[in-house]
Computed example of a mutant assay.
Amino acid sequence: MRVALVGMPGGGKSTVGRQLARQLDVPFVDSDTEIEKRIGCAIKSFFAREGEEAFRLIESEVIAGLLAADSDMVLATGGGAVLREENRDCLHERSTVLYLRSTPEELFRRLRHDTQRPLLQVKDPMAKLRELFAVRDPLYRRTAHFVLETGRPSVQGLVNMVLMQLELAGLVSPMRVKASVGAEPH
């Protein structure tokens, strides 16, 4: 069971991924966290110092390494992971890829106060989100096995949508998924 989440920055990949991994009882891995362990600093600092191309090369190596291991996981990727064809191919061939699709307007609402995303530290972040979306949306779609519109559901609502999609596709046994719909809170 290897599930990879792709989508725009702020699309909920890490948040949904953590809960999904918990529901499936598999490890959660965030490729950005793994990259920071490898480079020994924050991505934002590395990005500013070394540039996007150097970052994308390391990102590709990290994703390939994570998916080469024969272990179950839910993997949250960075928003730009799909920019390289080798990443798209690796993700699609070695995992079940879910695209958490959010509109630029939804993303702006979530990210307008975020100072940690290097590509959004620009004069007009909304224009940048629209530009990124125009380039990346077709790449996310090409990489994904399933596309889920994030809209306004809660995180748990999104997790349930992902689980239902995986179950309907025969990728997850109903017995493996902990009941959460209609379940009483502890």
Score class of each variant (00 low, 15 high):
132 L>P: 06
12 G>F: 07
4 A>N: 02
120 L>H: 08
11 G>C: 01
135 V>K: 07
111 L>E: 05
31 S>L: 03
112 R>L: 13
6 V>L: 04
71 S>L: 12
92 H>G: 05
87 N>I: 12
154 S>H: 07
123 K>L: 12
24 L>P: 04
152 R>V: 07
45 S>L: 13
107 L>Q: 07
21 A>E: 08
126 M>W: 11
146 F>V: 12
49 R>D: 12
63 I>T: 06
132 L>H: 08
109 R>Q: 15
49 R>V: 14
122 V>M: 05
89 D>H: 13
15 T>Y: 01
174 P>S: 09
183 A>R: 13
49 R>G: 01
100 L>A: 06
124 D>V: 15
113 H>F: 15
169 A>P: 04
35 I>R: 00
96 T>C: 09
41 C>R: 12
12 G>Y: 03
129 L>D: 03
107 L>V: 12
94 R>T: 05
79 G>K: 05
57 L>W: 08
27 P>W: 06
124 D>M: 11
104 P>E: 02
26 V>P: 03
167 E>D: 06
115 T>Y: 12
110 R>C: 11
136 R>S: 02
111 L>I: 12
35 I>M: 07
21 A>G: 03
130 R>Q: 10
55 F>A: 02
121 Q>A: 15
65 G>W: 11
127 A>E: 15
2 R>F: 12
185 P>Q: 08
126 M>V: 15
40 G>V: 13
184 E>D: 10
54 A>P: 02
3 V>Q: 00
72 D>N: 13
173 S>N: 13
37 K>M: 05
167 E>H: 09
25 D>Y: 05
175 M>K: 15
143 T>M: 03
155 V>S: 00
115 T>H: 11
75 L>K: 04
92 H>A: 13
148 L>H: 01
57 L>P: 00
66 L>I: 15
125 P>I: 02
102 S>R: 10
179 A>Y: 14
18 R>W: 04
124 D>K: 12
176 R>T: 15
146 F>I: 13
94 R>V: 03
137 D>N: 12
62 V>S: 02
91 L>F: 03
33 T>V: 15
102 S>M: 11
42 A>M: 10
8 M>W: 08
184 E>W: 14
61 E>S: 09
89 D>M: 09
92 H>N: 07
24 L>W: 11
79 G>F: 09
139 L>T: 03
115 T>S: 14
25 D>L: 06
128 K>T: 15
130 R>S: 07
89 D>V: 14
57 L>K: 10
37 K>D: 00
150 T>D: 00
58 I>R: 01
47 F>S: 01
104 P>G: 06
120 L>Y: 09
176 R>A: 14
119 L>N: 00
55 F>S: 01
97 V>G: 04
118 P>F: 15
37 K>E: 04
177 V>D: 05
99 Y>N: 01
150 T>L: 09
85 E>N: 04
53 E>N: 08
69 A>P: 00
4 A>C: 08
149 E>P: 09
93 E>S: 14
5 L>Y: 05
112 R>C: 15
5 L>A: 02
38 R>K: 08
4 A>D: 05
43 I>N: 02
47 F>R: 00
119 L>S: 10
